Amino acid sequence: MSYNNILSETRNGLTTITINRPKKLNALNKETIQELHEAFKEADNDSDTKVIIVTGSGEKAFVAGADISEFADFDEYNGSKLAAQGQELLFDYVENLDTPVIAAVNGFALGGGLELAMACHFRIASINAKMGLPEVSLGVIPGYGGTQRLPQLVGKGRAMEMVMTAGMIDSNQALEYGLVNHVTTEEDLIPLAEKIAGKIMRNSSVAIKGAIRAINANYRDGIHGYDVEIEEFGKCFGTDDFKEGTTAFLEKRKADFPGK
């Protein structure tokens, strides 16, 4: 599939999705959000894709925010609709994908950009990365899940400060906060993401899907995460991956998971 604002490449079990609007610092407009949805959907449905990496083109930005020109004249109804549609189409969608998604944060990840990174299953960052939710400086609040995911990742107090000050933190502070898992040089960002992806791909994709569902369940109101864990744990026993994994362990050899 061809896109106007993103690039998608699949190689050796890894799909890399690159937001490609460098002149706009990769800002998210409606078309880009739709294209990202389609690219993530295509990758998740591709049995050959075991891990997805999402990053931004150029050296300045992962995603520098949403395209403000598209909603500057919205009223209350259209504002609520914008947030609801965006969350359903991209941010919640990414969080709940069965395929692991790594955000490789290069440069600015602000507003919707940080919200996209936080929707991914985990994040790594280049040393020049800057992250923040500056929405209150525009008279609005984060609307793509930022007020929910940021406290889950860094704690309530730090999230309150980041949102209320509209300030940015650098990559080392993000690492200290637990917002990112690793920090590396700009040159080594994608190679590190690919190295981690390689470690993931050695394991059972079926079990990983179950683990994602169980971990996410812990953060949903009205759902008992332990019950989901028990359910997903039980499902594993009916899979070919479980048979291969346990047989390989007993035979003292490396598992060759069929992915089913």
Rank of each mutant, 00 (worst) to 15 (best):
G238C: 00
G112D: 06
T185M: 03
A197D: 08
G139T: 14
N128P: 00
P258G: 12
A39S: 10
T49S: 14
A166H: 11
K195Y: 09
E115S: 04
G259V: 11
A72H: 13
M160S: 04
P191G: 07
I19K: 03
L36S: 11
G222V: 08
V63D: 00
K24A: 12
P100Y: 09
F40R: 09
R202F: 03
D67W: 02
N78W: 10
M1S: 06
A129H: 06
L25E: 10
R202M: 11
Q152P: 00
A66V: 13
S171G: 06
G167W: 03
G107L: 04
L179Q: 04
L114T: 14
Q173Y: 05
D227N: 01
D67S: 08
H224G: 05
N96A: 07
E76D: 14
L97M: 09
P191R: 13
D227E: 07
K24V: 01
L138Y: 13
A64G: 12
Y3S: 06
K24N: 15
N26S: 05
T185K: 02
E76T: 11
G234K: 09
M168K: 12
G111D: 15
N203M: 13
V140C: 03
E229D: 08
P100W: 03
I127E: 15
F40A: 03
G13Y: 06
A83E: 14
G245Q: 13
R21F: 09
G222K: 05
I212T: 10
M118V: 05
T239N: 08
D46G: 13
D46E: 13
G145K: 01
E194P: 01
N128K: 09
N128S: 15
V140L: 12
T184V: 09
L138P: 00
G107A: 15
D44C: 05
V63H: 04
V136F: 05
A211S: 00
L25W: 00
E31Y: 05
I196K: 06
A255D: 03
A27F: 04
L36F: 08
E115C: 02
A207P: 02
S2H: 13
T55G: 00
F91R: 03
E31S: 08
G167E: 07
V136L: 14
Q87S: 01
P151N: 09
T32V: 12
I6T: 00
